[in-house]
């Protein structure tokens, strides 16, 4: 059954029509136009489709859009270029092909919101579900540490 729901994506309300089985991923890509949200595996195992809903990470390739009526969704496009995480990723060269990086940026944002000064182990624990096939992990780890410093200087 088609229903209309409202998604607040990066601060802007979008009224979209979805079926019972429509995925949040497809709504964001095809109706809202936020193509930083990407399908890498379709089974919630790579993290390329990560978005934040009310600040919590969600694998949008597994999420039924209907359940997100009224939710505040953040995608990487919605982060400012001067955002601590974004600017740290850029400065640390934490992107090669960059296809998976928006997912890492959002996971890192979630981590630093919950835990402003994570240890290296905590960074690893939080990001281990995201796959970067170019192997940018050392730079990503440095970027998250840099962003933590930038958001809450010791």
């Amino acid at each position: 059954m088609t229903v209309r729901i409202t998604l607040k994506v990066n601060g802007v309300d979008h009224r979209v029509a979805v079926e019972d089985d429509t995925l949040l991923l497809d709504v964001l890509r095809e109706q809202v136009g936020t193509t930083s949200v990407r399908e890498g595996c379709g089974v919630g195992a790579c993290g390329a489709c990560t978005v934040l809903s009310g600040g919590s990470s969600v694998s949008s390739c597994l999420a039924l859009a209907r359940r997100y009526d009224g939710a505040e969704i953040t995608t990487a496009e919605g982060l400012d270029e001067n955002d601590a995480v974004v600017s740290s990723f850029v400065e640390c060269g934490a992107a090669q092909c960059g296809y998976c990086i928006p997912g890492f940026v959002l996971m890192s944002t979630e981590l630093l919101t919950d835990n402003p000064r994570p240890t290296e182990q905590e960074i690893t624990d939080h990001l281990e579900g995201n796959i970067c096939r170019c192997g940018t992990y050392p730079e990503i780890r440095r970027a998250v540490a840099t962003a933590a410093q930038r958001r809450s200087p010791a």
Binding site: R29, S36, E77, E81, V86
Partner: peptide, 19 residues
């Protein structure tokens, strides 16, 4: 030199074929 389009790649603004 940093990749010329790193800022765009980090925020997912570089579009790909499927986009």
């Amino acid at each position: 030199r940093a990749r010329f389009d790193t800022a765009g790649r980090v925020r997912g603004l570089v579009s790909h074929v499927g986009d």
